[in-house]
């Protein structure tokens, strides 16, 4: 008995030492050693991250992880996915269970400053809206006084919701369910009058999960700003740089008109110094990031540029136009920091 106690105490000490050693190593080194990027994604939000019929993960959020893997390994498929609910996501990142969280996550002060996280870019500018059955005959969010609202816990959504109703002097009854399938089931069964989340999420729920999408409308009011983007843990600046620039490269490729299709041609023939720098024809950028010079070439070749990723995932699956997410040159907000 006593011996066992001593052994247990010893084992605990060893475990603690091991934990500390793991902490000391850089995330990027860990990723290189294990050979893949562990990517935290949504449990299933078509267009952003969802497993397709063959079990392959797809979506605009998934593409950020694939871009990071392409940059590090030259192989966009060197990614493993961890589906996470809104309430689980930050703990998974803080504890090192995942390397990137790319899961329609809003950048906020608290998350950035208090949770030990770093937002490395915004891959989707969004805002919160309301989805409601047509049959209720509601045409504006200002008519929602007294409504029952389905919402997911641990989101900015539930905070904006309380703020909005408080500011408008209206009341509501929340039904808070963590799992998106349970939550949407509650909404479709009539447990709630309204479902609220990011407008993109509403589009996804309406077009992909409703039996008859035409029975539901998204109200015109957008009640918040939701800049969604990939997040990494603080502590490894080299790794956050890789993810930041992997995403920036996708946007810059679109700005230069470099696509999956023409990237080889561009690499061989383009005389534009910006494109030459991006694709590693004139070296330096890869070295700066501690990556192969073909890092951005691999991203565009295997994942595509931002516009292609958007088109393939968001427009094709959810029917959403570029809107705020158009390039700045087209009047949108997507504006890549220059790769130079």
């Amino acid at each position: 008995m006593k011996i066992q106690t001593i052994l247990a105490a010893g084992a605990m000490t060893v475990a603690a030492v091991a934990a500390q050693n793991a902490q000391a190593g850089a995330v990027l080194d860990g990723i290189k050693a294990k050979g893949f990027v562990q990517c935290g994604v949504n449990t299933g939000l078509p267009g952003f991250s969802a497993a397709n019929a063959e079990g392959k993960w797809e979506g605009i959020d998934v593409d950020v992880c694939r871009a990071a893997a392409a940059a590090v390994f030259g192989d966009a498929n060197a990614v493993q996915y961890t589906p996470l609910t809104a309430a689980q996501r930050f703990t998974a990142l803080q504890s090192g269970e995942i390397d990137i969280l790319s899961r329609n996550t809003t950048a906020t002060t608290t998350r950035d400053a208090k949770l030990g996280l770093t937002f490395v870019g915004i891959n989707y500018y969004d805002g919160q809206g309301f989805l409601i059955p047509k049959a209720l005959g509601v045409s504006s969010a200002t008519e929602l006084d007294g409504a029952t609202v389905c919402v997911e816990p641990g989101t900015t959504t539930e905070l904006n919701l309380a703020d909005y109703f408080r500011a408008k002097g209206m009341s509501f009854e929340p039904v808070v369910i963590e799992n998106i399938n349970e939550a949407t089931a509650a909404f479709f069964s009539g447990r709630c009058d309204v479902y609220t989340t990011d407008a993109s999420g509403l589009a996804s729920i309406r077009t992909q999960m409703a039996e008859n999408p035409a029975d539901y409308v998204i109200l015109p009011e957008i009640i918040s700003k939701e800049p969604l983007g990939p997040v990494v843990a603080q502590g490894d600046e080299q790794w956050s740089d890789v993810v930041r620039w992997a995403f920036a490269a996708m946007v810059e490729a679109e700005e230069y008109g470099v696509t999956m299709e023409n990237v080889d041609d561009m690499k061989a023939n383009s005389t534009n110094p910006g494109i030459q720098r991006l694709l590693g024809v004139s070296p330096g950028m890869g070295e700066a990031l501690g990556l192969d010079e073909a890092w951005a070439y691999n991203i565009v070749k295997q994942v595509g540029n931002y516009g292609e990723s958007y088109e393939k995932n968001v427009t094709a699956k959810l029917g959403l136009e570029r809107g705020l997410n158009a390039l700045w040159t087209d009047g949108g907000l997507q504006y890549a920091w220059p790769v130079r």
């Binding site: 309430a87 930050f90 703990t91 816990p153 641990g154």
Partner: peptide, 9 residues
């Protein structure tokens, strides 16, 4: 608690 832990980190 879950919600609290998530909103405050």
């Amino acid at each position: 608690s879950n919600t609290t832990m998530n909103q405050t980190g």
